[in-house]
């Protein structure tokens, strides 16, 4: 991912299932400040909820960082604003990322649409996971 200018940053610690609420409301508010409409806020909040749920359920707790980002446009072109979500845990990690990114694949009893869903909800998506070390997921959505 190309680096972007960060103008605001919110950290949400995730340990208990009730912590998800703060991540969702913070994401909504930040997306609102970035100028996203109701639908955009909903998409971003849902993606954050998805990642936060994973961290709490499978990652043994972690943190999600929400960022208001800006990218400069080409010469003479306006730049664009967006939201960046960085979700990180130091849990058991994902053994097979390719499979985790497939629809309807789940090691738990979930629908198995979470990670691929996040990728579809957002514009940019990056995931890296090492078994025994943890999982890092970065996703971005730009305002149109």
């Amino acid at each position: 991912m190309t680096p972007a200018h960060v103008s605001e940053e919110v950290h949400v610690e995730l340990n208990l299932s009730t912590d998800n609420a703060l991540a969702i409301t913070s994401a909504r508010r930040l997306a609102g400040r970035a100028g996203f409409d109701e639908a955009g806020q909903s998409l971003i909040a849902t993606a954050v909820s998805e990642l936060a749920t994973n961290i709490i359920r499978y990652g043994g707790g972690g943190e999600v960082v929400l960022r208001l980002i800006h990218e400069q446009g080409e010469v003479g072109q306006p730049g664009r604003d967006g939201v960046e979500v960085v979700a990180e845990d130091h849990g058991p990690g994902i053994r097979n990322i390719e499979r985790a990114m497939q629809d309807h694949f789940s090691t738990g009893k979930s629908l198995g649409l979470g990670l691929p869903g996040v990728k579809r909800l957002m514009d940019e998506f990056f995931i890296n996971s090492k078994p025994g070390v943890g999982t890092l997921c970065i996703a971005r959505k730009w305002r149109r």
């Binding site: 909903s42 998409l43 629908l111």
Partner: peptide, 14 residues
């Protein structure tokens, strides 16, 4: 099911 939720559900593939 608001328009936003409908869009989200479709994107998620639910």
């Amino acid at each position: 099911i608001s328009p936003a939720v409908a869009e989200t559900l479709v994107q998620l593939g639910i």
